[in-house]
Write a protein that binds this DNA or RNA. Structure first.
Lengths: 235, 235
DNA sequence: CCTCTCGATTGATCCCGATCAAATTCCTCC
DNA sequence: GGAGGAATTTGATCGGGATCAATCGAGAGG
């Protein structure tokens, strides 16, 4: 299973400034690190969290990427979020006691695991951690609300543009190229994240390509005019 | 301003079983009650929370109803949620430290106020309260995610039907008639909540009326066939 | 290398809800 | 009660994205 290696502290992790400890004191980071377990490598398509399962831990992506997805009443899959290194997955499950969506690796992926028990206890004693978890929940809520509104007021071009710009900035935060992007998710995943169909995503990307805003080659995308994309959603 | 009357404890409030204390122990409820202030009456249209303001408290509706709304990039208003008695408002602000949306009374309204300081302190000492607040946040997140997906997969009839059914069940929980409903919100509010236009809401209501599923007279709505409405969203 | 399969692209058509416009009802303030 | 104004309803038209359908491209495995 998973093994706890004391020498792998959160404080010395390369992700420490963009991960859960980002806003914690060194002392709090040290304590948090003591509860963190390092998960095994997952291959693409492997499931990290099963929908409906009782929450037993919080997960953080270390390397690779994942998607959170649920099932709609009609059986169609929808994608709630994509998770990059340092980003938390399963928070809504931690809040509710039960996971409501699957988390699946999009490519070979590694992760950290923080068991619920110790995490609950730390929330009582570490105000910084408590605030941070609350903040992350609030932020997810903001994000979901914003996307909810966008779905009904911003057109396909605006939504896809925002997706690309947002992804770009998150990659940049991780010292990856913000313009030369390899998408780990399929067109179908993107469509189901934005509330569009695969065809529309494809057509819209083609339109961006014709406008010379992006260069598209399969899953590689180069942003040629990020500013043009960023200015789109303003209506 | 607001005055703290010790004799108005949460334990003896009529809302206690559908309000914040619903899942708290008697002891926790007592301690929570000690921090609760009773707000003054608000008239319709009065603002309870101003967007952008630093969070200084959490609010709970006592009587009447309210809406949470934000401003989109184009200046249009959108409605995040409607709040009935016993429901919490301003939670996302408490999570983030700053309110991101306005909360406005839809009719004469009364409320309780729980200052942030005491609430933060209680979160450290009362595990039940901490869990409850996390649960509420997680629930809001679920709700927002669900609505986000619905906005792009379920049509206007389905969304309006779900809104009515949901409202009905929340009224029933409060021992109000689930079928004879007086809407405290305008058609515009409903439209901006569901990501539709006023015209579409009006037309869809008219269609429900023609199907004899509802009776509509201005802001009074009678649900004649709740089952028919409830079965709609399944596609 | 070839084939098989799944993902992605492109094309044609259709429908739901937005938009513009006008009539009507409801509510509030004299 | 009457007048004014906002909210709501109804009508006509239009367009963006869904849908159906076919082709193209890329990676896997023999």
């Amino acid at each position: 299973m998973s093994q706890n290696k004391p020498q792998l502290s959160c404080g010395s992790c390369v992700l420490t400034r963009i991960c859960l400890p980002a806003n914690l004191s060194p002392e709090e980071t040290r304590i948090l690190g003591g509860a963190v377990e390092r998960g095994r490598e997952l291959r693409a398509g492997a499931r990290l969290i099963r929908a409906g399962a009782r929450t037993d831990a919080l997960y953080v992506v270390r390397g690779g990427s994942a998607k959170s997805c649920g099932l709609m009443s009609n059986g169609e899959e929808y994608v709630r979020a994509f998770h990059l290194p340092g980003e938390v997955a399963g928070l809504e499950g931690f809040a509710c006691g039960r996971h409501t969506c699957e988390v699946v690796a999009l490519e070979p992926m590694s992760y950290c695991r923080i068991p619920s028990g110790p995490l609950e206890r730390m929330m009582a004693t570490l105000p910084g951690l408590r605030r941070e978890l609350m903040r992350l929940l609030g932020q997810s809520l903001e994000e979901a609300q914003r996307m909810r509104i966008e779905s009904s007021t911003i057109d396909a071009r605006g939504r896809l543009a925002r997706f690309l710009v947002d992804l770009s900035s998150r990659l940049e935060l991780r010292h990856l190229s913000p313009t030369h992007i390899r998408l780990s998710m399929s067109r179908r995943d993107i469509a189901h994240h934005l509330g569009l169909t695969v065809e529309t995503v494809s057509r819209t990307l083609a339109a961006f390509r014709r406008a010379s805003w992006v260069e598209v080659r399969a899953r590689y995308i180069e942003l040629l005019q990020p500013a043009a994309l960023a200015s789109l959603p303003v209506r």
